[in-house]
Design a protein around this nucleic acid. Sequence first.
DNA 1: TGCCCTGGCGCC
DNA 2: AAAGGGCGCCAGGGCA
Length: 547
Amino acid sequence: MVVLVSPEPEGAGRLRVLDAGSSERISDHTTADLAGWIASYEAEHQPRWVFPATDELYPALLDAGVRVARCHDLTLTEGILLAHDGRHGTPRNPLAAWARLHRAPEPPDRPPPARDAQPALFETDQRLVLLDQAEEVYRDQLQRIDAIDRMRLLVAAESAGALAAAEMTYHGLPWNEEVHRALLVDMLGPKPAPGARPAKLAELADRIIAAFGGYALNPDSPPSVVRAFARQGIEIPSTRAWVLREVDHPAVEPLLEYKELARMWTAHGWTWIDSWVHGGRFRPEYVVGGVVSGRWATRGGAALQLPKALRTAVRALPGWSLVVADAAQLEPRILAALSEDRRLAEVSADIDLYASLAADSFDGDRGRAKIAMLSAMYGGTSGGAGPLLAVLRKRFPQAVGHVEQAAAAGEQGLMVRSVLGRTSPRPSERRLELMGATEESSLQKSRQASREWGRFTRNFVVQASAADWALVLLVTLRRRLAETAPKAEIVFYQHDEIMVHTPADQAETVTAELLAATEETTHLVFPGTPVKFPLDLSTVDRYSDAK
DNA sequence: TGCCCTGGCGCC
DNA sequence: AAAGGGCGCCAGGGCA
């Protein structure tokens, strides 16, 4: 069964049941208790729910204790299909999609909610998506999906990902606030009065000023630091840490320490705790498909940038465990599978791909092997990467050719796609103009603009395909855990890493499901590939102990 | 005062 | 070790 859902204010809604195979209409329903209706229908039929926007509806369902297994998200699907046509940025909300079918004015997408806005239960504004509209858009999307190879898998994964994202926010990451506070006191000193610097930072600021001969400066202000060095006859292009490290001056050491601590204070200090940790859980909001490559973003809390030093605050509850799975060296393996490079596939059989690559082509020098591979995937040539890349190209022509072709496409302003069909945006008008410039005077800038975009598309094919693979892994795992370890909670997902919080006696089941899900994912995304995708797996009490 | 840009740095 | 690709967040600082 397929059930179209039209949420209405105050928890009410309308629904339309379609036959999954024939798509014939079976029945219409009106209810004042949408969550209750969905709960009982889910228990009996497990249909595919068609939601206008999962992130607007599903959190309220979860609050009401309702989980669903499968959905089709009209908004996310529209976004992927538009992007496939080179129409990034076109409004993707279902009313806009409906309007396009009727050549009517398209309402713009809603801007993301303000940070402190508390959404009302089942909030829909004035933007009700009627059942007839949802049905038309859904049927249109099905046709467009069927016309594109592999698109069915991509939109199914994206939609299931939206369910997983809302569930992760609902569960939250188990966060031990006391541990975090103790860590802050240890690093920064006691919590300062409002407006004051923590003691350690104040002390370091004094040391920095003393090292500059007592001349006042603000270490938080890069220009002020550059000026201070200039007064001493030291010219630096910026105050980046790796620039400062090359400078021989007594202010460098306290400055570097200051930067590190200041970062912890401003980005993950006491204010962060008050804003983001409640009831022992850190609840960031994930933005599915928030990055063009299909990686997720987060809204608030910087959840995808948790400093390693803070991971000790992520602790399983008593009697529970954290199962942490990290896809080892995912991107080069993705490149091996994408390009169908036999020899690179053989190299990927080793759990340490770079060591294996080093043994194969770089006289066992793992560091050089890694630089070569990264420069192939990212387009870098500094640090002597050029000759190393040449070695790689000679030995793995198919793999290197694959990314170089993507780079060439980008330099010509063409779009490239991930393995499942997620599509890169076109360069902006401004950049296209620059790239096409032929006057002698702007040739240099023109080439630079083209090269930059080539680096972007070169990386896009790998990063976006890795995001495809990881997303399918996430939703495959979610489906399997619902069957075999229903108490286990997926609590964190970060590009190539998944964390499950589970009753300790289920940890082995979770681990087995992760391995099985990885096999299943690889067969789905890269059917028949010989490339191996090993996981680094740990079962721990605290995140910092993983790996 | 609020808005927007930049530099810098955390993660992958 | 960084760089080369992708992000989000914060403080400073210029401007209206």
